[in-house]
């Protein structure tokens, strides 16, 4: 017999998860009201809520959010495609692995942000530099996971390629791609999350343009910390939506290996 708790239900879990931030906001609000903390430095939840209400009516906010999302989409799609191609080649070919592997492993040890100055010099710190940075950040997890997934395909499954004389396309579509699917999707999932982080990061690190990073920076200069926090919440929400949305896609694509669901 398995014990069921009230927090096993979906809503129960959600309520439990929200309890902590809600309590935190309450304490915070109380402390700000009593003057224990300086609410111009520590934006109180109430001020943040008002800032959120203002932002959602501000066309500038939406245009910055849109700019960030579009930048993210371009860089991430490019990064995923590059990572996938390179990962498949690296996983399938021992020669490519021996040739590029050590360099890539060494590159892994270099913190990704150190690329920013180089990219800025090579591509300029405008749109190209930013997108290139997002591409780099997203390509790497896809590359490593894909290569690993292809490498770990089982010999007993690969044997079917020979037995049935599968052509290149069928081999790819029916064996290699789906067989490495779980690892590839793991990499793509990381890429989707990292891509969004890299987008905001790029907007901070490269020359100002538009986007959420720039939007935040503008409020920071004005010491409007309530608006800074409101932007943070919006960015976080986008991240959560990406995470949950991709989780669903992943679950659908990997339904073949799921334990029988109710």
């Amino acid at each position: 017999m398995s014990a069921r708790h009230w927090h096993d239900s979906r809503w129960g879990t959600l309520a439990l998860g929200l309890a902590f931030p809600a309590a935190l906001a309450l304490v915070w609000q109380g402390a700000a009201a009593k003057g224990i903390i300086d609410s111009s430095v520590w934006a109180s939840p109430w001020l943040v809520a008002k800032a959120v209400a203002t932002q959602v009516r501000d066309p500038q906010f939406w245009s910055d959010l849109g700019a960030s999302l579009w930048r993210d989409a371009q860089g991430t799609v490019l990064g995923i495609l590059l990572g996938l191609g390179a990962g498949l080649a690296l996983g399938r070919s021992a020669l490519a692995r021996d040739f590029f592997g050590p360099t890539l492993d060494a590159a892994k040890a270099v913190p990704i942000f150190t690329w920013v100055p180089l990219l800025a010099v090579w591509l300029g710190s405008g749109e190209e530099g930013k997108i290139a940075f997002i591409t780099l950040v997203t390509a790497l997890p896809v590359l490593f996971n894909t290569a690993e997934g292809v490498r770990s395909l089982e010999a007993r499954h690969l044997e079917l390629i020979r037995l049935y004389h599968l052509g290149r396309l069928t081999t790819f579509r029916r064996v290699v791609l789906p067989g490495a699917g779980p690892a590839i999707l793991r990499g793509v999932h990381q890429a989707v999350l990292f891509g969004w982080l890299a987008t905001i990061g790029a907007e901070f690190l490269f020359e100002a343009g538009n986007g959420m990073g720039t939007n935040i920076n503008g409020f920071k200069e004005l010491y409007a910390l309530d608006f800074v926090v409101a932007d943070m919440l919006a960015i976080g929400l986008v991240g959560i939506i990406f995470d949950l949305g991709f989780g669903r896609i992943e679950k659908f694509l990997l339904r073949w290996r799921e334990d029988s669901s109710p």
Binding site: R156, H157, E159, L160, Y164, H165, L166, G167, T170, R174, V175, P178, G179, G181, W256, R257
Partner: peptide, 18 residues
């Protein structure tokens, strides 16, 4: 020796590939 990611029918069709 069925491929776990293909449906039963797709597994059989594999033998007719090419």
């Amino acid at each position: 020796r069925l491929l776990p990611w293909l449906s039963v029918l797709q597994n059989i069709e594999l033998a007719l590939s090419g």
